[in-house]
Design a protein around this nucleic acid. Structure first.
Lengths: 248, 248
DNA sequence: AATAAAAACTGATTTATATCAACTTTATTG
DNA sequence: CAATAAAGTTGATATAAATCAGTTTTTATT
């Protein structure tokens, strides 16, 4: 079972962290170089500034609740938000939104009045709440701005496709390897970091049970792929994790 | 195992097909009342007409291949297209695009040069291929058109979230019930129809094995939820399927 | 510092579902 | 119209991973 992925090991020319960060995993975090606000006119910028508030959310707090009326578009200034779909008693994490992300864009169409997902703060998070009707108005009059929104929606869609594939077609080893690569390469941007997520949160993120996450992490440790000391998490064998991610 | 869903049966006030169609399943087919072309000026319309070709694809043919350069945006005039993500030897169907759909919108950002998924014709399908740079140009100058694109992207995103949840968090009975409701309510729009999909295609669509699809269909038949006679497929108990879909 | 509570971990068991290996029926084609 | 291929079906088996039940460790609280 653990040996499985060794049988098909081949070397990968991954040498440093930058390469890793550029490799396409189904990472939940996007690059999010959102620049649509650069295209606003003076008046539009004023209009937005007059119709927004900035709020700080504590870790765990709900920023936007699925099913409630979308009165504002959320713009993440700082922190990390968990965007997830709620159905029944089960949650599905759609993405982790890093600073610079826009949340609630799917409510821009006039026939979409409510949030299609819940967003909560993974860590303490600073958010700008911008009146959705102001955004709608500017979209209707400023094509460059609208184009920026299209870019943001496209980026989210592409990323979500990868995550969709990962969660529905890969098995546990591959899923967890993917999440680890994502954490190291895109969130912490280093091989050694303090893991601020609990095993339960890792499980939710990779769509597996907490116990399976623990067992899989242990196997990764035994195989020298990672090392965990207390809260310190270190990625030792990137290439190995990459291969597991691609084949598992 | 089969009895499972009976234990939690409750009545649902679903009385006719219209109600069913409005119920939110994670249906792969969107309503797709795409109207962004209504906002074009005369010149823009001319520009598009001069930079498009109309092509008919036979059942099974590939319309756009993942990884190839996106030279055109696809506009479906007639038929049905299967949009799927390819990775390794496994495919993941992202959505079924009905007439009126736009395919390739995720390639609109300038840094997105290649198709992020493959599109193939489920049945004989008529497609307009519109030069992507012309679309990009119009997006940059016509805010109403861009807004229409945003609406289309949002609709796809919402629908994909539902499907994502269905495939990753539900088990076989729920997945298949969902697909059946989708076929009846959104594609064929009647309770009795000729199933043009093979068991294998149903399996791919619901993310399960062909054998499991067959067994599950048999169980649905035994329980009086559906009836299959040759190629004729009939939905008998909508409410039952709905409940299985929601709880399975 | 003592206690409670939450998180982490471990082993045994169960379960859903895939896989495998037949076989039957329905299409397709020379 | 036989021959061949493809699709559909069935039962047996395998397996990945969840669930369950319990223990240990860590963190938080009074």
């Amino acid at each position: 079972m653990i040996k499985r992925y060794y049988l098909i090991f081949v070397s990968l020319n991954v040498t440093n962290l930058n390469d890793i960060a550029n490799i396409k995993t189904s990472c939940t975090v996007g690059k999010s170089n959102n620049n649509c606000f650069d295209f606003l006119t003076e008046e539009e910028r004023d209009l937005i500034n007059k119709n927004k508030v900035t709020v700080e959310y504590r870790k765990g707090e709900v920023i936007a609740k699925q099913g409630t009326f979308t009165t504002h578009i959320l713009y993440l200034l700082d922190g990390l938000a968990k965007v997830y779909y709620e159905a029944g008693d089960r949650n599905l994490i759609l993405r982790i939104a890093p600073p610079g992300s826009l949340i609630g864009l799917t409510s821009l169409p006039l026939n979409q009045t409510v949030f299609q997902y819940t967003a909560s703060a993974y860590v303490n998070t600073l958010v700008e709440l911008i009146d959705i009707n102001v955004v709608r108005q500017i979209v209707q009059q400023n094509a460059k701005f609208a184009s920026g929104i299209i870019d943001a929606l496209s980026e989210i869609a592409i990323q979500k496709n990868g995550r969709f594939f990962c969660l529905s077609h890969r098995q546990s080893y591959g899923k967890l390897a993917d999440i680890i690569l994502c954490l190291a390469g895109n969130i912490f941007k280093t091989t050694k970091f303090n893991l601020l997520l609990s095993r339960k949160e890792l499980a939710e993120l990779s769509g597996m049970s907490t116990e399976s996450v623990i067992r899989t992490l242990k196997n990764f440790q035994d195989d020298g792929l990672i090392s965990i000391k207390g809260k310190t998490f270190e990625v030792i064998d990137y290439e190995g994790l990459m291969k597991i991610c691609q084949l598992g």
